[in-house]
């Protein structure tokens, strides 16, 4: 059993969102970078749990990013996983990243590819689906549970207002979200061990991106809250009805 977990780097959830270079670049200086929460808490931890059940399992982590992503992938290795691969490419566009990941996945011959549900910066929710298509594998998105019985995976995925249970033969690409696993904190042994785990650097394959970010924009500031007295909630209901017209 070989699992590939796709790891991306995002600004911390509380980072200030601002842009530079005429609003064409995210102002990343001084920002704390973290492993994308979906990749860390759900995709990686579920992979580690599968390995704990079946120690013959091999987990590889992969990230597409320049040298500044190495602390992130090392941090992921401290949680678990046997080795990491960094594809030395820029975050050009989702198709570019998915193509790089597909190349790594083809070389490695994995039974299972985990991604997060989405990156919390660009919120694409695109890479898992693209990767599955490039690999010609089934894709289960927004998975909240994953179980394995031999070569058959049973996966619960979120649908509007409910959930669906699917069965699929490996290999499969799965995008992971809440429910898959519980967040873990890396321990000292993991952190020390991560230093000696192999981290391979590969050069990207030549792929032309299909999209580009022309500019960013911040939402207009809110006009400010209109406060109603706690003695008069009926006035709030009137305002919602007559002024905001929401019901």
């Amino acid at each position: 059993m070989k699992i590939l977990v796709c790891i991306s780097k995002t600004p911390d959830t509380t980072a200030k969102i601002a842009f530079t270079d005429n609003n064409t670049k995210f102002a990343g200086d001084g920002v704390q970078w973290i492993i994308n929460p979906y990749d860390e808490w759900y995709a990686l931890v579920r992979a580690i749990e599968l390995k704990e059940k079946d120690p013959a399992t091999v987990i590889h982590l992969v990230t597409v990013g320049l040298a500044d992503t190495e602390p992130i992938i090392r941090k992921a290795l401290a949680l678990g996983g046997d080795e990491a691969i960094r594809v030395n490419g820029e975050n050009a566009d989702p198709f570019y990243i998915a193509s790089q990941l597909a190349e790594v996945a083809r070389q490695g011959g994995y039974d299972l590819v985990f991604t997060g549900k989405e990156t919390i910066d660009y919120n694409g929710s695109a890479i898992g689906g693209m990767l599955a298509e490039l690999l010609d594998m089934p894709y289960i998105s927004l998975a909240a549970k994953f179980d394995l019985n031999g070569s058959v995976a049973t996966i619960v995925r979120e649908i509007e207002g409910g959930e669906e249970t699917d069965e699929v033969n490996l290999p499969v690409v799965v995008s992971c979200q809440k429910g898959m696993a519980e967040q873990r904190i890396p321990n000292m042994k993991g952190i020390m061990g991560a230093r000696s785990k192999p981290l391979k650097v590969l050069e990207p394959v030549a792929i032309a991106p299909l999209t580009s970010i022309a500019s960013f924009e911040l939402p207009p500031a809110k006009a400010g809250v209109k406060l109603v007295s706690a003695d008069n909630p009926a006035e709030l209901i009137r305002l919602l009805h007559e002024e905001a017209k929401v019901f």
Binding site: S212, E217, P219
Partner: peptide
């Protein structure tokens, strides 16, 4: 125009 950074900003993406 799309929503990015969990609704905290927007990006304009060009498609060619």
């Amino acid at each position: 125009k799309k929503s990015v950074f969990s609704g905290k900003a927007f990006a304009h993406i060009s498609l060619k």
